[in-house]
Every structure is written in structure tokens, then in C-alpha cells.
Design a binder for these strands. Structure first.
Lengths: 198, 198
DNA sequence: CGACAAATCTTGACACCGTCAACATACATC
DNA sequence: GATGTATGTTGACGGTGTCAAGATTTGTCG
């Protein structure tokens, strides 16, 4: 290993992921191209194809990182049972919105059409996303067992609807339909009241 | 006008819109290219640029059609005050989901990132979308005046949150995250209960 | 150590894409 | 009939994802 003009790059796979994250932060997801990414790393256009099946594979890997970050935060939020559902859910909503808006591009990738509808999601990505949601469902169930939430409600449905609502709000912001963050905060409180007092 | 090998196409603008709708229905929005569309109409690659500023302009025009269709349906739904909010909202939800899933590609265009975040929406599109939402807000206000909805709630916020929830569900379906339509029906009923009994 | 296989990286090529510039044709109007 | 405008054309530029074939390095086994 001459260390200087090395033919093999070392850990191109990881470097690709890191650089891709930078590009996405700079120019959004549509600004990410395989060729441009290769250029930035001073590597040939097709080098990445030895580490990812295709562009979809790379995107899935980036989305996976997002899910791991979110899961870590989620674990903290779900680790102990709340005293008041209303306060907890407001806290949860804020954390969710913060994640979705601060890592907007990651969020769009994690739940967006390019991966889930068109390019098939990687099996590992599928599992990560499923686990994240599942841990939320189980949290709702634990809350029901402690009588924090009415037990006659279907835990899965409750989790789906409450998450779907948050997801809807986040999409409205990230897609540029609602841009007023204050409105969103207020909407968030409204939806909290709906879920918590029911 | 020789009628046969006519140089001028007649009403290319409308034909472009019609054919684009077909392409979108066949191959989804990403399958629509300016060049491919021109080919299908037997016209040169840049002919469309005399009728739309650029691809974004064409997409906006398609989205406008979607908004007009939705507004027509909306007018019917909002024309008279309901007797029961719960029944009405269930009816409304179903209509919204039907529209969003049956015209999935149109829906994604109407509320999707490509237009609102990246390519700036046309002024006319902006107005159409604003009007549609505004008519919903005014409906909520009328319901409040008739004491069908608690008056202390902010009508705008209520409209935003309820619509945001429906939008969230639709995105989950259209983006391929939830594919089970039965689950969605059930989720829909759950969210109805949240809004109607509050 | 040498040979051979696997991993990794390269260039070349293909088929797309959006869109600008320059030019050609048809139509409308004075 | 001349002239301007609307509409159509081809040519070109730079961009994209990705496949095939060849080059080079690394890992493995006798």
C-alpha cells in the first residue's frame, strides 16, 4: 500500500455515505447524482456501483441511517411510561416535528415515494422502519395496560392514526405547502388535544 | 388549411394536457418526459415549449385540472350544512380518500414537493389551491355558527388539522407505505371519531 | 513464494433527459 | 401583398443512470 496514489480507496462505501449526506444537506435530495457524488470524492463515475447495487441502493442506505438516528431518539422517548398522556404526546409531537424538519431531506427519503413506491426498499431498510413503528405500537399498548389510554381502542389503529397525523403535518411543512412554523406549532397542539382527551 | 400534413397542430396545448394525463395514469409522474410526450403526439421535442414555459409549467397545468375536479366535488360536499358532524365527516373522509387514491398521480402533483418546493407553483395554481382550502375553512365556520362545532375552537386550525390528518393518511397510501386499503378505512373511522366527538 | 480468484476501480458507450438558439412555416392584420 | 406573431422544426449542450469490458490491487491457498 503506497498510501499516496492508492488505487483502492480504502473505505469508499462509508465515504460515499458521508459525502452523500453533505450533498443532500446542501442541495436537497434531487441535487444528489451518482456522477456528481463520485466527482466530489475524486473517483470515477461508476465506482459507487461496487458498493451499492444502484442509486436506489444508496438512497436506501442513507434512509437507514435516518431510521437509526430516529430509533435512538425514539428509544429515549418511549423508555418510561408518562404521567400525563397530554404532556407526553405534546413532547413527542415536538420531537417528531423537530426531527422531520431539521433532517428534512432524510425524512423525505425515509418515508418518501422514491424509495417505497418506485425503487423497492432494501430488506434491511424495511426491517428498520417496521421496528421503529412497532416500538411505538408497543408503547401505546403499555400505556393501555396502565390505563393511561382507554383500553377498548385498538392500539395499532391508534398508533397509525396519531402517527399518520404527525406525518401529514410534517409533509405539509417539508413539501413547502405550510411554511409558517408557528401555525404548525399551534396545529400540533390542536391535534394533541384531540388525541389526549379522547 | 390542407387538413392533412398540417404544420400547425390545431390545439396542441390541450392535446398535450390530455396525453400527459394518459402517460401519468400509465407510468406515474416520473414516467412523464417532455420528449416522450412529444413523441406520442408525433410532434417535435420542443414543440411543447411554445405552450408551457417549461416542464414545471406543464405539471402545474395538470395539477390545476386536478384542483378543478376536486373543487367541483368539494362544492357538492359543502353545499348544505350537515345534520350530524360525525356522519358528514365520515362521508367527507371517504370522498377525500377516494379522490386521492383514484387520482393518485394527480393528487401527488397537486400537493407534492416537485411543484411546491422546487418548481415554483404558477400563480393560477396557487389561487386554485388556496380557494379550495378556503371554501373548507368557511364551511367549518358555518358549522360553528349553527352550533354543530364548538365555537371556541379556531376554525382555521380545525380545518388545518383535520385536513392535515386526511392528507397524511393519503400520503401513506399513495407513497406505498400503507397498502392495505381496509386498514385505511378503519383508520379513517378512527380519525373521524376523534374530530367529530370533540 | 507463486498462482489464481475476488474485490475494487477505470474508461467507453448507450440511451435517456430538459432546454436553449436558430431557423422555417403558417396565420392574422393592416 | 407586406409584416409581425404564433407555432412548429432541427441542432446542440450539458446533464443523468448504468452496463460491459478491461485494469489493478488485495486476499487466499497450495
Amino acid at each position: 500500500m503506497t498510501d499516496k496514489n492508492k488505487y483502492h480507496h480504502g473505505d469508499l462505501q462509508q465515504k460515499l455515505l458521508n459525502e452523500a449526506a453533505l450533498v443532500i444537506a446542501e442541495k436537497s435530495i434531487d441535487g444528489l447524482s451518482m456522477r456528481g457524488l463520485a466527482d466530489r470524492l475524486g473517483v470515477s463515475r461508476t465506482a459507487a456501483y461496487h458498493h451499492f447495487k444502484d442509486k436506489n441502493g444508496l438512497l436506501c442506505a442513507i434512509a437507514e441511517d435516518g431510521f437509526r438516528r430516529w430509533q435512538a431518539e425514539l428509544d429515549g422517548l418511549l423508555s418510561q411510561l408518562p404521567e400525563s398522556m397530554e404532556i407526553w404526546f405534546e413532547h413527542f409531537s415536538r420531537a417528531y416535528l423537530d426531527f422531520a424538519t431539521e433532517s428534512a431531506e432524510h425524512y423525505d427519503l425515509m418515508f418518501g415515494r422514491p424509495i417505497w413506491k418506485h425503487g423497492q426498499p432494501t430488506e434491511s431498510l424495511r426491517k428498520l422502519s417496521y421496528d421503529a413503528f412497532q416500538s411505538y405500537v408497543e408503547f401505546v399498548e403499555r400505556c393501555q395496560q396502565k390505563n393511561l389510554i382507554a383500553e377498548e381502542q385498538n392500539a395499532l389503529r391508534l398508533a397509525q392514526v396519531s402517527w399518520g397525523t404527525l406525518h401529514g403535518l410534517c409533509r405539509l411543512i417539508n413539501d413547502g405547502i405550510y411554511i409558517d412554523r408557528d401555525s404548525v406549532e399551534d396545529m400540533c397542539k390542536n391535534s394533541v388535544r384531540l388525541f389526549a382527551t379522547n
